[in-house]
Design a protein around this nucleic acid. Sequence first.
DNA 1: AAGACGAAAGTGGTTGA
DNA 2: TCAACAACTTTCGTCTT
Length: 330
Amino acid sequence: MANGINSRSDGNYHDQMDMIEKCPDCGSEDIATDETRGEKICTTCGVVILSRMIDTGKEWRAFTANEQKKRSRTGSPMKLTIHDKGLTTMIGWDDKDAAGNKLSSRRRAEIYRLRKWQMGPRLYDSKGKNLTQALAELERLSSQLSISQSLKEFTALIYRKAFDKGLVRGRTIDGMIAASLYAASRIRKVPRPLAEIANESRANKKEVGRCYRLLIRYLDLEIPVADPMDYVARFGEELNLSSKAQKQAYKILEKAKKEGLSVGRDPPGLAASAIYISSILENERKTQREIASLARVTEVTVRNRYKELVKKLEISFVIQKSPYKIFNSK
DNA sequence: AAGACGAAAGTGGTTGA
DNA sequence: TCAACAACTTTCGTCTT
């Protein structure tokens, strides 16, 4: 392996990098380093001397000296889902020194005290305790609902803000986490119905709703107006609806919005009924029950919405008799 | 039997006096 | 602070396929 940091026999990577001064191919000393690709290239003959270089630079950018100062750190990138943001050095648990020798009993006692000191602020400090518990709950919820890592981190950020403003006091941690997740999903435009989140949470829907209202009231979160369209893709996916039917649903919702039928209506419910109609129009009929349970509303709501839509949007149906088919007569 | 329908009563939140 | 109100839920009997 000529260029391998993978290969042990190449020795220390940095030594190797420093050693290279001449191109092994043509002997030229004009060697360029391509930082973005992680390669060293001979500018005379074009041969790649070293590839897959380790980037020892930073993963962030800074535009002013101030920013540069603020962002500098050592260690791994900050993660908001870890209660101390992942910035720690741990004292190991095996009683050995760096060389692997056993410690003397006196030294061992000393290390034991140090460990205790280290754990102290993490577990015993009330904020740390709260966040530890909250983030464990977030982890649990996220895996139940298959929430992306980035949305998880965003949720954690919202929760931290809420905590710092003292909003958690008097509310349950579970409720607050669920509410933060709901808010995060709304802001990122990948909403889940509140009821869906509440269903997996240990807090009930009422509690989550209360916490959510608290969040938007006291953290100035810019939450976009709930749009039924944001639900269509996900519901459609779960129902195995064709993209044609999904498009049909979008069209219906667009019209509904123009007619002002969407104001004051529960967006998941509205999305559900639009999907119900389009599933019929495209001959991929789904039952009201199936769609309703996905959107976490009752069949009654789906019915009411869909009756309304059909009537006001003049989607005139001709209901045929026997195989219970509905055709679009334009 | 499953799905759709709609009436009636109940729930929790918002609004406006 | 309280009553009216709109949207949604729960429950249930009936009709259709």
